[in-house]
Write a protein that binds this DNA or RNA. Structure first.
Lengths: 108, 108
DNA sequence: TTTACACATTCCTATATAGGAATATAATAA
DNA sequence: TTATTATATTCCTATATAGGAATGTGTAAA
């Protein structure tokens, strides 16, 4: 079985690099699908499908205007990630971690 | 094609709930595989395999002692996540977001 | 009322896993 | 040595997608 989740949660949604890229493009404000297609030079269905996943995870919202659809980020939905990571903040830059990182880099 | 990444990056590694759980168990300090098996009541191969993915993503480190292996979190490796999410912090709790969240909750 | 446009959805396929069962490996104990 | 313990790895299967191609849907323009 692959990832067991049947529906997209926030963590899974942003695990896909292309979806993170889409979210980043939307930082500046809402954009239409066509604009995203142009900016990314991905196929239109590809953009739409990734947006659909992001929407299912509530990470973006949609606004219809004529035949265009404008998407924008729901930044608040990223809070759970922040909260989860925050637990580990106090352990950053400990001696052990510095050493680990050093050894890890060294191996490559 | 599923997730295109051939190797585990940090985002993909923590997308799996069980792996987040393992990381959380390791906050308090290093634990052996056996201890993790007991704490989680998952099968031993399951624990080992998830640990292996976390190790590949450098999220944990291993220390051998006799026939046991103790794992600990490399908290520093979570920084990229924090950094990525931080971009969106300033957009938290905007009016749009509040509304989105409200509508999203309402729909469920 | 057709045509063109913007976008979503469906159908298909290839592939990366998550999990279970069985087995391998390495270290200690007998 | 041989047995036991702790853990990793392999083999297998089921399944969730990511991507491409084709098609559907709704809106506006001609």
């Amino acid at each position: 079985m692959p990832r067991t989740a049947n529906t997209y949660d926030t963590f899974t949604a942003i695990a896909e690099p292309k979806r993170r890229e889409l979210i980043e493009k939307l930082i500046g404000g809402e954009l239409s699908v066509g604009q995203l297609v142009e900016i990314t030079s991905w196929s239109q269905p590809m953009v739409s499908k990734h947006l659909s996943v992001l929407k299912e995870a509530s990470l973006v919202s949609e606004r219809k205007e004529g035949r265009q659809r404008f998407y924008r980020v729901n930044a608040n939905e990223l809070k759970p990630i922040q909260i989860w990571v925050r637990q580990f903040e106090k352990y950053w830059n400990t001696q052990f971690d510095q050493l680990d990182e050093y050894l890890s880099k060294l191996q490559k």
